[in-house]
Nucleic acid binder design. Structure first.
Lengths: 250, 250
DNA sequence: GAGTGGTCTAGACCACGGT
DNA sequence: CCGTGGTCTAGACCACTCG
């Protein structure tokens, strides 16, 4: 690692990165490329320090940063592991609906359709692909108990996950992010969301058991992998009578 | 600081806190109590280390945590300062509306009314006060350019900010959080929000230039001080045709 | 008991901002 | 130039997990 950047480079401004940041970036790549696989235990701090030719403290700083990004999990006395999406974790991390008392809700899933379609200009822009790129288009309804509460459209570039459609017959009820990781080694690390209030279309109204025009909370989410590349575009429309979307601002 | 907790206490489980966490907690109290005031430069790491009887590295870890909480700002070569709410910072930190291109929007403000009223049971619960406690109730419309986009009700316990009403005639257009800090030494450090889609009431429709029943994005925010105590309850209703609420999930 | 991560210390050197 | 925070190192000791 010391050899990655000469002393003069390190002092020359633009290219300078602290050692721990270089170590972290390399480790992130290793996770993104599958060299370190989800669930795998990685070497301890001293072994990594030797490998990168830095001190254990520098490795620690990189690991702390990776843990903050939720790319690894550390357990005192056990070791450090590459983070794995379990259905529970995927929901806890990315699903923000709570009931009136503030308790987190867990939905079940009911598939409606799955096809492939060319990306519109807008969809392509959001996903960072060329317009016309083939996308998987999956629609489903999600329920809280027996109450249909969410109408959802999921769009994923076919090139990223060629066999996605095949798996869906059986695994549709699973968390999509678990499927992406287990079948395609693609880990969703973060997402950006845009929220608006909209009127239910006739189709949405029918599936959500409300009248046409009923106000729905629309969430447009772009989910990204560990390197920040967009992987999935998801448009969700929530019935928010007894439920609400919870977030913290700091 | 070493004296705060004996060795036996430190080993006895429940009460145990790492040294840097104890240092951080003490510093947070100093900021909350006004012993360290907004904008003030605080002593350097070595002076603090001497004062707390810990090493400079431990102080640093506490300071890094305070910086992550946005309670202080650090500048290499200049020093460490207690964070101050400027209108720009308050907006950047807490105002999440963006236009269709994703650019942050800055609203202007137009006051509608200010009164005092007893807290309902629900309002009291959210603010952590007794039902019937007197609250300032402020309503206003916020605009993007000439477009009235937000209808907002702000509720603050009178006991926390007795003279709030007096200041409002002139400063209504300012960021409330700047007023809370400058006039009452209360710093808003974080907030929790609940979002739903609702129908515009007749009054909201009139102020926002939409028809009654138009879908609005409702944001219920509880703003808290550095110690996590609720200070303000704010119900905002956003017209989200050309604007949307942006958030990141990690 | 061996091995892991968590805390704490001590000190070196650097980059940056103002005098 | 001096004082500040930022980076990096080295090593000690502790708490936790597991065989």
């Amino acid at each position: 690692m010391r050899a990655v950047m000469s002393e003069t480079e390190r002092k020359s401004g633009a290219a300078f990165q602290p050692l721990y940041a270089q170590v972290k970036a390399t480790m992130t790549q290793w996770i993104g490329s599958g060299r370190w696989q989800p669930g795998e235990m990685i070497p301890n701090e001293f072994q990594l320090a030797a490998e990168f030719n830095v001190s254990q403290g520098t490795v620690r700083k990189a690991l702390m940063a990776l843990e903050a990004d939720k790319l690894i999990v550390r357990h005192q006395g056990r070791g450090t592991y590459v983070a794995r999406h379990t259905p529970q974790r995927a929901l806890f991390q990315f699903f923000r609906m709570v009931d009136e008392g503030g308790k987190r809700l867990t939905p079940t899933s009911q598939p409606l359709s799955q096809t492939q379609r060319k990306a519109t200009r807008e969809q392509a822009r959001l996903l960072g692909v060329e317009p016309g790129t083939m996308l998987h288009v999956i629609t489903r309804v999600r329920l809280f108990g027996a109450d249909p509460a969410i109408f959802e459209r999921i769009l994923v570039p076919v090139a990223l996950m060629p066999e996605l459609a095949v798996t869906l017959g059986t695994e549709m009820t699973d968390e999509m992010y678990v499927i992406y990781q287990d079948r395609f080694l693609i880990t969703i690390a973060r997402a950006s969301e845009r929220l608006r209030a909209v009127r239910a279309t006739r189709e949405e109204a029918r599936h959500l058991a409300v009248e046409e025009g009923y106000p729905l909370l629309e969430v447009v989410r772009i989910a990204k992998d560990v390197n920040g590349k967009p992987v999935e575009l998801r448009i969700s429309r929530y019935k928010t009578k007894e439920y609400s979307y919870a977030t913290e601002v700091t």
